[in-house]
Amino acid sequence: MTALTFAAAQTIVATAHDHARTQNLKPLAFVVLDAGGHLVAAGREDGATFFRTEIAKAKATCALGMGVDTAVTAERAKGNPTFYAGIVTTLGGDVVFSPGGVLIHDADGVVIGAVGVSGDTGEADAACANVGIKAAGLIGSN
């Protein structure tokens, strides 16, 4: 298993940020957690509201805790809203079922962390996360 390094997390944040600017996205926040849910790196663009960092962290936490990207949990929640509302309540609101939380895998397919991005559409947030993960030489979603 490869450990998620601070350098890799910084690359993820910086590259996700650069991608967001080339796409003219709304101001974003980025959070990278290791497999244990510990903060490794974070950033908030100028103009991003102060909630964005917490939402990004909740997306990354959700991906880790559920074992799938938040785009998957968002779809699953549509079919079982009571169960997913119960998860949010049980976890004190620290998870978000919206695209933009992406698991980070090493070359062996082991989950070594997650990225949460918040500020634009969920799909745009997830795209930024995946660009950053790839730039760090790691594997995100397909």
Rank of each mutant, 00 (worst) to 15 (best):
M1F: 13
M1A: 14
L4V: 11
A7C: 06
A8Y: 02
A8P: 03
A8S: 13
I12D: 05
I12V: 15
A16H: 03
H17Y: 11
H17C: 01
D18F: 03
D18A: 15
A20S: 14
Q23N: 11
L25Y: 13
L28Q: 04
F30I: 04
F30M: 05
V32M: 08
G36L: 09
A41N: 00
R44E: 10
D46N: 12
A48I: 02
T49D: 11
F50W: 11
F50M: 10
R52N: 12
R52Q: 10
T53M: 07
E54H: 12
I55Q: 01
K57E: 12
K57S: 07
K59I: 03
A60L: 07
C62P: 00
L64K: 00
G65S: 12
G65H: 08
T70R: 00
T70I: 07
T73K: 05
T73P: 00
A74P: 00
E75V: 12
R76Y: 05
T82H: 11
A85N: 15
G86L: 03
G86Q: 00
T89P: 00
T89I: 10
L91R: 13
D94W: 06
D94I: 01
V95Y: 03
F97S: 04
S98K: 07
G100H: 09
V102A: 06
D106E: 07
A107D: 15
V110T: 14
G113T: 08
A114E: 06
V115N: 07
G116C: 09
V117R: 02
V117T: 00
G119K: 05
D120F: 07
E123M: 09
E123Q: 15
A124T: 10
D125Q: 07
C128W: 04
G132M: 05
I133E: 00
K134T: 15
A135I: 14
G137A: 11
I139Y: 10
S141G: 15
